[in-house]
């Protein structure tokens, strides 16, 4: 019954590599000024497919249970109502992680044999929940990285947006706060918080960071998100999680015998070398590219050549740089070469 990794041979089980225990505390944090409100998504074009992404593949992402609250049926009824009100001719696709078989089970029972809804149990490999891969696996359609899927009639929603749409559109209540996952080696403990939109990062992290540690803060994960240095930045709806990592910028003795000590910190864990042709990068690439070719072109000073090797297909998941034992900055090279193409 399981529908798994179609057209997706690479990827990485991040959830298994970095098991983060999140305790159940949900901390309420309010902003000092008037909170902003949730912007209801606008869709000009006719929506034909709605994909509900219930498949978080990054351990630091907001887990499903926060929104589902163990009352899955209530959530499914919400979806049904939204579907009837806003896109009645669209088909709904529930993409659920294989790790939560109970939710998959309930979703299958809920869907029954009805035509408007489909249930998929997807493997929890990162980056399964990337829009490009999700549309490829669920709909069999090819979209490009960074492209807006709405012109194709595809809308991808996460559970939190669904519940906000329900509250604001159907219950007619303003949504002014959202859940965030807070995790990382720089924190005292990992937790889920409920914050008002517009709260500053500084206020959220107050009293939560471990003492006497240098740390760096990342929004939406260290793999695809961005680093922030200005902590007065405000939280908006696009922020799903905050990761605070310890900055271990000192030498560690005998790294070969204690791998876990440096894991999940910003340390490079190894020194930069030349490419050793180990094939780790192309084995892990979810869209079947050969990232080392970009590196080889780049060091030869032929940036323009790098783009010949299907670079446009790259979804910038960062796995190639993540896995490279020579610690090459493959993703940086890719982004640089892509930017070169745009200017021409």
């Amino acid at each position: 019954m399981k529908k798994e990794t179609m057209g997706f041979k690479g990827g990485f089980h991040l959830l298994d590599a970095y098991p983060l225990s999140v305790c159940n505390i949900i901390d309420e944090i309010s902003s000092d000024s008037t909170p902003e409100t949730f912007q209801f998504p606008v869709f000009g074009q006719k929506i034909k497919h709605v994909i509900v992404n219930l498949c978080p593949t990054e351990p630091w992402a907001l887990p499903n249970w926060v929104i589902l609250k163990h009352k899955t049926i209530v959530f499914f009824n919400m979806i049904k109502e939204i579907q009837k009100t806003y896109f009645s001719d669209a088909r709904l696709y529930l993409a659920i992680t294989e790790k939560e078989d109970r939710v998959v089970e309930e979703a299958r029972n809920f869907a029954g044999g009805e035509d408007w809804i489909r249930v998929f149990s997807l493997s929890a490999k990162y980056p399964q929940d990337d829009p490009v891969i999700l549309t490829k696996i669920v709909l069999g359609m090819d979209v490009n990285f960074g492209q807006d899927t709405k012109p194709f009639g595809i809308l991808i929603l996460d559970p939190q947006t669904i519940s906000a749409m329900h509250e604001q559109g159907i219950m007619r209540k303003d949504v002014t706060s959202r859940y965030l996952a807070l995790s990382g080696t720089g924190l005292r403990e990992n937790e889920i918080i409920h914050v008002e939109l517009g709260t500053s990062v500084e206020k959220i992290l107050k009293n939560k960071v471990r003492e006497a540690v240098t740390f760096r803060v990342f929004i939406n994960g260290p793999l695809r998100g961005k680093e922030i240095t200005d902590f007065s930045q405000k939280i908006d709806w696009s922020v799903n999680n905050i990761v605070v990592l310890e900055e271990k910028n000192r030498k560690a003795l005998f790294p070969m015998f204690k791998a876990d000590e440096l894991a999940f910190t910003t340390n490079l864990i190894g020194e930069s070398r030349r490419c050793v042709y180990c094939n780790f990068c192309d084995d892990i690439c979810p869209v079947d590219l050969e990232p080392a070719l970009y590196y080889h072109s780049y060091v030869r000073g032929e940036k323009h050549k790098a783009r010949l090797y299907n670079m446009g297909k790259c979804i910038e998941c960062g796995l190639c740089s993540f896995i490279c034992p020579s610690k090459l900055e493959l993703q940086k090279i890719i982004i640089e070469c892509k930017a070169l193409g745009k200017h021409e």
């Binding site: 260290p222 910028n249 490279c324």
Partner: peptide, 17 residues
């Protein structure tokens, strides 16, 4: 192990060198 830390995306690296 060297003390270098990541400066570009991705900010965590696999512990295999």
């Amino acid at each position: 192990s060297p003390k270098e830390t990541t400066q570009t995306l991705p900010f965590i690296r696999n512990n295999y060198d």
